[in-house]
């Protein structure tokens, strides 16, 4: 029940166009989670460190807690909910995270997958070191990252048409 004047925002999220009137100070993460009811992206800190809120905006990784919704006006956004194919087939990254045990509590996972998605677009066949530095803006408290690295390698291999390693351990 804010007294601040609402402003219009138009965004395309996961291929669908949304128009809303929002407080100019509303953060993009709250817009996505509460206005659009897409709760896959999470909030883990207040300082742009953890990356749990990472989404893809106009092909780039953004921490949606660090932007206002109004700054996304006109943008095209992909969230974790838009990663699987319309027929439900999981993206290679989603499959890789499961196959390689790249997640535990699942809280960082949507942000981690969205970050990895852009990373693999920029660098389709990254080394372990490149993956580690590429996901350094996303924190995970459960996995120790080792199997996240393997999950991203799994996806890279699959997307490059190589045979993929069977399972973790």
């Amino acid at each position: 029940m804010s007294t601040i004047e609402q402003v219009p925002v138009t965004v395309t999220v996961n291929g669908k166009k949304y128009q809303r009137f929002v407080d100019p100070r509303m953060l993009l993460i709250h817009f996505i989670r509460e206005e659009l009811n897409l709760t896959g992206a999470h909030i883990g800190c207040d300082t742009s460190h953890c990356g749990a809120c990472t989404v893809e905006m106009n092909g780039m990784s953004v921490k949606s807690c660090t932007m206002f919704a109004v700054q996304a006006d006109g943008a095209s956004i992909t969230t974790i909910e838009g990663m699987a194919a319309p027929d439900g087939t999981l993206h290679a990254l989603q499959e890789g995270f499961r196959m390689m045990h790249g997640l535990q509590c699942g809280y960082c996972t949507p942000g981690m997958i969205m970050r990895a998605h852009v990373l693999l677009k920029e660098n389709p066949d990254p080394t372990e070191e490149e993956i580690r530095s590429g996901i350094a803006g996303n924190l995970c408290r459960c996995t120790g990252y080792q199997n996240i690295v393997k999950a991203i390698q799994y996806a890279a291999a699959k997307l490059n048409g190589r045979t993929v390693q069977e399972a973790a351990e």
Partner: peptide, 23 residues
Amino acid sequence: CKRKRVEDIRFTQGKGNYVDDIK
């Protein structure tokens, strides 16, 4: 056996249900 996790099906698709997701 190294059974793959049941939980991951929802977590990898953003379909987890944490407290702040409840409205």
